[in-house]
């Protein structure tokens, strides 16, 4: 019995050692990028491959640095912490809005896209307004008392929760005391599925994912920008989150982004906007 047990233990140790050794192939010629691939057109699954605008950008960075780029799908809410630790990945490209809280933990690349928060509703539920810049929109005050679905830890979630709870002591948000409820889902599409199932009244999500989600069902659902008043949109800027110790990578990302942003074609679209249109199926 003792012999058998000791033999087993030795075997187990050997297996562990072997695994540890093989896994120590060092990843210096590899950039590991975490993302949440349910945020079309910035990142989404095509078969089992992750593709999208952010993915194209990171692949260009890979070419720039002469490294291979590996993409791994993770829950959106965990991404910033991964990048902060920097142990398992170098950066996260997931359509991150640059916020002060996030910038404390990670470095952000230059802004490469400006997005507006959108509201998806069943057609005819809310009155569509026209803002002063002629954009069709909904106002925050219209969301009073509604059940609002968001993607966990996205800016949509932060904004809606902030407006419900009030931004600071004594200062009420737009939705404070209106019975508005915020429900967070793991990804935007799940929130949209909940809207379709009648569990919530509207979904607050970034502009492009919102347009993308309703693309196949524009007969029943509509999505318009979310404005504070006729002059102020709920806008935000995207950046790629990079670990604070990866200055070289950050520089390469910024170089690629600046080149893309400066590359304006005859239609006045820059490189990033053209990528967005390609992934939207609108052609380059």
């Amino acid at each position: 019995m003792k012999k058998i047990i000791s033999l087993i233990l030795v075997l187990a140790l050997a297996v562990c050692g072997a695994i540890a050794l093989t896994s120590c192939k060092d990843g210096d010629d590899e950039i590991i990028v975490f993302t949440n691939a349910f945020f079309a057109p910035f990142e989404y699954y095509d078969g089992t491959n992750i593709v999208g605008v952010d993915i194209d950008i990171m692949n260009m960075v890979g070419v720039e640095m002469g490294k291979t780029v590996k993409f791994v799908n993770k829950d959106f809410g965990t991404l910033i912490n991964y990048v902060e630790t920097g142990k398992l990945c170098d950066c996260a490209a997931a359509g991150f809005t640059i916020t002060a809280e996030r910038a404390e933990k990670v470095d952000f690349s230059v802004t490469y896209y400006t997005s507006i928060q959108y509201v998806i509703v069943e057609k005819g539920t809310l009155l569509v307004n026209t803002a002063n810049d002629d954009e069709q929109c909904f106002y925050w005050s219209q969301l009073a008392g509604l059940k609002i679905g968001v993607q966990l830890d996205t800016t949509g979630n932060i904004y809606v929760q902030g407006e419900i709870d009030g931004w600071e002591e004594g200062v009420d948000g737009e939705l404070t005391d209106t019975d508005a409820e915020c429900t967070a889902y793991d990804d935007a599409q799940l929130a949209y599925a909940a809207l379709k199932a009648g569990q919530i009244d509207c979904v607050v999500v970034d502009e492009l994912p919102a347009k993308y989600l309703i693309k196949n069902d524009t007969a029943n659902y509509e999505a318009y920008a979310l404005y504070y008043d006729a002059d102020t949109a709920t806008s935000e800027e995207y950046g790629i989150a990079v670990n604070k110790n990866q200055q070289e990578l950050l520089a390469a990302i910024n170089k690629v982004l600046n080149a893309l942003l400066a590359d304006i074609d005859t239609n006045g679209k820059n490189g990033v906007e053209r990528l967005v249109m390609t992934h939207f199926g609108l052609g380059a």
Binding site: Y44, Q189, A193, Y212, N216
Partner: peptide, 9 residues
């Protein structure tokens, strides 16, 4: 079921 594919879970 994700967006780019069937867009229905």
């Amino acid at each position: 079921g994700s967006g780019q594919n069937m867009a229905d879970y």
